[in-house]
Simulated assay, not measured.
Amino acid sequence: MRSSADRADAVTAALGAASDTILAAIAACVVAAPVVLLDGRSGVGKSSLARDLVARWPGGGAVQLVALDSLYPGWDGLDDGVEDAREHILAPHRAGRIGVWRRWDWVAHARAEAYAVVPDLPLVVEGSGLLTAATAPLGEVRVWLESPEDSRRERALTRDGDAYRPHWARWAAQERRHLERDDPVRHATHVFDVP
């Protein structure tokens, strides 16, 4: 049986290897401001991977990062958050226009301040539910991360604790619908397993 330190090391190694592969794909992109879409179920490591990609972006420079946790309108909002990202971030970026999205305030249960996404800078968007038939054409590099449920749950609840615990099953049901309906693996250019 592996210790929690061994599991953490294995996760770090898997995400590091995924990051290396994705960074090579980004470097090979012919567009000046590529878009990377990261999808996977809760607790799989999307946020950690996204931060690493931004920190190690080929050639340095500014990279925009949007986490769908800032767009989902509450615990039942997976689909609405993805549609908001498609309409207000990804489609404008692809069309060469400035996109504007509003953060969801989880405490006030309302939209909050607005943020702009400029089309001439690279963009990383990460979140559960992100890879669909409608969003896939808007990203050059499309990533699906897979991990066993017990590992994901442990990481997510360690990260978010009691704020997430009562909503785990509710959120997981939305993720299952996404998997059945959208088949995100089919839309991915890269698929990685995380222990």
Rank of each mutant, 00 (worst) to 15 (best):
L65H: 14
A169H: 04
R94Y: 13
S47L: 03
V82D: 00
H178V: 01
H190G: 02
G99Q: 08
A188Q: 09
L131E: 01
V36Y: 03
I98S: 06
R2C: 00
S4T: 13
V100Q: 05
W104H: 03
T189L: 08
G99I: 04
A5P: 01
V66T: 03
A25T: 05
A163S: 15
A67T: 11
P92I: 12
S48W: 11
G61F: 06
V185E: 11
A85V: 02
L49K: 11
A108S: 13
D80M: 04
T135K: 05
A24S: 14
A169L: 05
E83D: 10
F192L: 03
D80C: 02
H167I: 07
S48G: 15
A85Q: 00
L23M: 09
L157T: 08
H167D: 00
S70P: 05
A163G: 14
W104G: 08
L71P: 01
P148Q: 03
D52Y: 04
P34C: 10
D76K: 14
V54T: 15
A13V: 07
V35F: 02
D183Q: 14
L71A: 06
V117D: 04
W57N: 09
A32P: 00
P58R: 07
H109Y: 08
D105I: 02
I98Q: 07
R186H: 11
P122V: 12
V143F: 02
E175R: 09
L90P: 01
I98W: 02
A95W: 06
L138C: 10
